[in-house]
C-alpha cells in the first residue's frame, strides 16, 4: 500500500488528532458537570427531580448519538455552528452515561458509612461531602477514564456535520487523493494510539490510587 500522500497531507491528520482530543476533553468536562447534577437529582428524595433525571438518562441512552447530533444541529430553531453543536451533542450524551457512573460510584460506598456519619450528628449534605463523595471518587475515576476513551471513538460521528476532527479530515484526504482506503488505515491507527495510550495511563493511575488505599 502506498502512503506517499502523507508527506503532503500529514497536517490534516495531526490537526484532526488535536481536534478530536479537544472535542473529547471538552465533552467529558461538560458531561461530568451535567452528570454530577443528574446523579444528585437521581439519588435525591424529591420524586419530581428524580423522574426528570431518569427520563433524560433513559432517553439519551435509548436513542442513537447520530440522531441526537442531527437534532441539535438541524432541528433547533436557531443555528449552532458545527463545533459547538458537536461539543453540545457529545456533552449531553456523555452526561447521561457519566450520571450513571457517578450514581453507581456513590451507591457502591457501604451504607454503614452514611449511617456512621449521620449518627455522629452530621447533616446529610455534610456526610456526603466529607464521607461519601471522597470514597465514591475512587470508584468513579476509572470508569470516567473509560468514558473518555469511549468519547474519543464516538466523536468520529460528529464528522457528519462537518466538524474537522480526525475522521472528517481523513475523509477530506480521501477525497483529495482519490484513495479510498489508505487514509482510513492512518485514521484507525491514530485512534488506536490515542485510546491505547490513554488506557495505559489510566491503568497506571488506578494502580496508584489502589496503593494509596492501603493507607500510607
Amino acid at each position: 500500500m502506498d502512503f506517499s500522500f502523507l508527506s503532503k497531507y500529514y497536517m490534516f491528520f495531526l490537526i484532526g488528532v488535536r481536534n478530536t482530543i479537544l472535542l473529547a476533553a471538552f465533552s467529558v468536562f461538560f458531561g461530568t458537570i451535567l452528570g454530577v447534577f443528574l446523579a444528585l437529582m437521581k439519588i435525591c428524595k424529591n420524586k419530581f427531580l428524580k423522574s426528570i433525571a431518569s427520563a433524560y438518562i433513559e432517553f439519551i441512552r435509548g436513542t442513537p448519538l447520530l440522531v441526537q447530533l442531527l437534532i441539535i444541529y438541524f432541528g433547533l430553531p436557531f443555528n449552532i455552528p458545527e463545533i459547538p453543536a458537536g461539543v453540545i451533542a457529545l456533552s449531553l450524551n456523555s452526561g447521561a452515561y457519566i450520571a450513571e457512573i457517578i450514581r453507581a460510584g456513590i451507591e457502591a460506598v457501604d451504607y454503614g458509612q452514611m449511617e456512621a456519619a449521620r449518627s455522629l450528628g452530621m447533616p446529610y449534605s455534610m456526610a456526603m461531602k466529607y464521607i461519601i463523595i471522597p470514597q465514591a471518587f475512587k470508584n468513579i475515576l476509572p470508569a470516567l477514564g473509560n468514558e473518555f476513551i469511549t468519547i474519543i471513538k464516538e466523536s468520529a460521528i460528529v464528522s457528519v456535520i462537518g466538524v474537522p476532527e480526525l475522521m472528517y479530515n481523513a475523509d477530506t484526504v480521501r477525497g483529495n487523493t482519490f484513495r479510498a482506503f489508505a487514509p482510513l488505515i492512518i485514521a484507525a491507527m491514530l485512534y488506536f494510539v490515542l485510546t491505547f495510550t490513554l488506557s495505559k495511563v489510566l491503568r497506571m493511575a488506578e494502580r496508584r490510587l489502589k496503593a494509596s488505599d492501603q493507607g500510607v
Partner: peptide
C-alpha cells in the same frame, strides 16, 4: 452509636 461493622471512615 457503635456498630457491629465498626464503620470507620477508611
Amino acid at each position: 452509636m457503635v456498630f457491629q461493622q465498626f464503620n470507620l471512615f477508611p
